[in-house]
Simulated scan of single mutants.
Amino acid sequence: MKKDFYEILGIDKSASPEQIKKAYRKKAIEYHPDKNPGDKEAEEKFKLAAEAYEVLSDPDKKARYDQYGHAAFDGAGGFGGGGHMNMDDIFSQFGDIFGSAFGGGFGGFSGGFGGGGGQRRMKGSNLRIKVKLTLEEIANGVEKKVKVKRKVQAQGVTYKTCPTCNGSGQVTKVTNTILGRMQTSSPCHTCSGSGQIIDGKPSNADAQGMIMEDETVSIKIPAGVVDGMQLKVAGKGNDAPGGNSVPGDLIVAIEEVEHEKLKREGENLHYDLYISFPEAALGTSKDIDTVNGKVRIKLEEGIQSGKILRLKGKGIPSLNNYGSGDLLVHVNVWTPKTLNKEQKQFFEKMLEDEHFVPKPEKSDKSFFEKVKDMFS
């Protein structure tokens, strides 16, 4: 079971953005690879703190996490608000938060940054797409195949060691001050910290050795997503130049297509059912649209307009796997707007008939009671 993000950072849900940032910086410094060389447990805590901060520092992600927990970012295909972050992601995104605590470098994690600020492992830019989903697809989960135009490294591109930084990815500057000689390091401006520059490239590649390619990406979208939610497909963004680079991510924004008859409210669905006077008086059976096909319901004779019928479990599944919402059928008795002479005469005769005089029972709830029940 995944550990709570607030617990990881040692804060509560009411923490301000500044408190969240301060708590993360404290954890990041405590478990930084430079302070804990070779300590796998510290490395894991360092990654967990970064994952927690990535979500809680983003107002949209934080709101979704507060509502749905880890399920808001779970799903097949590499989705997540964090969870898939590696050291390169962390230093690339959040290095400025704690970098000054380590002499301005990017830390000493092997395989990417090097002790005292070595090569930066470049990460490509993210791509963003919007995927439209019907209520039926949202209710059942779906796999979508989308065509994405990505920047990828061209075949035949070769690299050589950057002559400016000699492959270190960093340039060092020594300044004489009244306090003595001070040494500072910064990413190499020639290679952007990668330690490599292009040695040769094919004619169809751009200055960075990249070409545009179309790729079909399969996206598995879990049931219960909501409009505006963003999912992440790791590694399906643009490539970055350099032999030691990693691709960016594909950010998938969910857009819910409005259903013709069903209206969504969280995990519940609403359906307006219109019936005639005769159907209300005599009772009837009706076919109702659901996200899994039609179901037939029976209306008892004498049913009143405003009656709400609840079909348990016929709504949208919960992202937290807590079951599904309900389908609320709102019964509306349709009043005819035009009547012929014979029909008018019939209703005129019924004006004083005891069977047509309203006699609400205690069990017949008022409009305000029904609204209260809906929100309780």
Score class of each variant (00 low, 15 high):
6 Y>Q: 11
8 I>T: 15
12 D>M: 01
16 S>T: 15
17 P>Q: 03
29 I>L: 01
31 Y>P: 03
32 H>T: 05
37 P>L: 07
39 D>A: 01
40 K>N: 07
41 E>T: 11
41 E>P: 00
41 E>H: 06
43 E>G: 03
43 E>Q: 04
43 E>C: 02
49 A>M: 11
54 E>A: 14
54 E>R: 13
54 E>W: 03
61 K>M: 14
62 K>H: 01
69 G>N: 07
70 H>S: 09
71 A>E: 03
74 D>F: 09
82 G>A: 06
83 G>M: 02
87 M>L: 07
92 S>M: 11
94 F>G: 02
96 D>T: 07
97 I>R: 09
100 S>C: 03
101 A>L: 02
101 A>H: 14
104 G>Q: 11
105 G>T: 15
111 G>R: 03
114 G>I: 01
117 G>S: 11
118 G>V: 08
120 R>Y: 06
120 R>W: 01
121 R>F: 00
123 K>A: 00
124 G>K: 08
124 G>S: 03
125 S>P: 00
127 L>G: 01
128 R>K: 13
131 V>Y: 02
131 V>R: 03
131 V>P: 00
132 K>D: 15
133 L>S: 11
137 E>M: 10
138 I>S: 04
139 A>N: 04
139 A>D: 02
144 K>C: 09
144 K>I: 10
145 K>W: 02
146 V>Q: 14
147 K>P: 00
149 K>A: 04
154 A>Q: 05
155 Q>F: 05
156 G>K: 02
157 V>G: 11
163 P>M: 00
167 G>D: 08
178 I>W: 01
182 M>E: 14
182 M>T: 13
183 Q>T: 15
188 C>Y: 08
190 T>Q: 12
195 G>V: 09
199 D>H: 08
199 D>W: 00
203 S>Q: 13
204 N>W: 04
209 G>V: 09
209 G>D: 06
209 G>E: 06
210 M>F: 04
217 V>H: 08
218 S>D: 12
222 P>H: 03
223 A>P: 13
223 A>L: 05
224 G>F: 14
246 V>P: 00
250 L>F: 03
251 I>W: 10
252 V>T: 07
253 A>C: 01
253 A>V: 09
256 E>Y: 00
260 E>N: 13
260 E>A: 15
261 K>R: 10
261 K>L: 11
263 K>L: 11
264 R>Y: 02
264 R>A: 15
266 G>M: 10
269 L>K: 05
270 H>E: 15
271 Y>F: 15
271 Y>M: 11
271 Y>N: 10
272 D>H: 05
272 D>K: 07
273 L>Y: 04
274 Y>M: 07
275 I>K: 11
277 F>E: 04
277 F>W: 12
286 K>I: 05
293 G>P: 10
295 V>K: 15
302 G>D: 10
305 S>C: 04
306 G>I: 10
307 K>I: 04
309 L>M: 14
312 K>F: 14
318 S>C: 09
324 S>F: 01
324 S>E: 09
326 D>W: 01
328 L>K: 12
329 V>S: 12
330 H>I: 08
333 V>T: 10
334 W>M: 13
334 W>Y: 12
334 W>V: 06
337 K>W: 05
343 Q>E: 15
344 K>E: 15
344 K>N: 11
345 Q>K: 12
350 M>T: 09
353 D>G: 02
355 H>Q: 12
356 F>D: 02
357 V>A: 06
358 P>H: 10
359 K>I: 04
360 P>A: 02
361 E>F: 01
361 E>C: 03
362 K>W: 02
364 D>V: 04
374 M>N: 10
374 M>I: 14
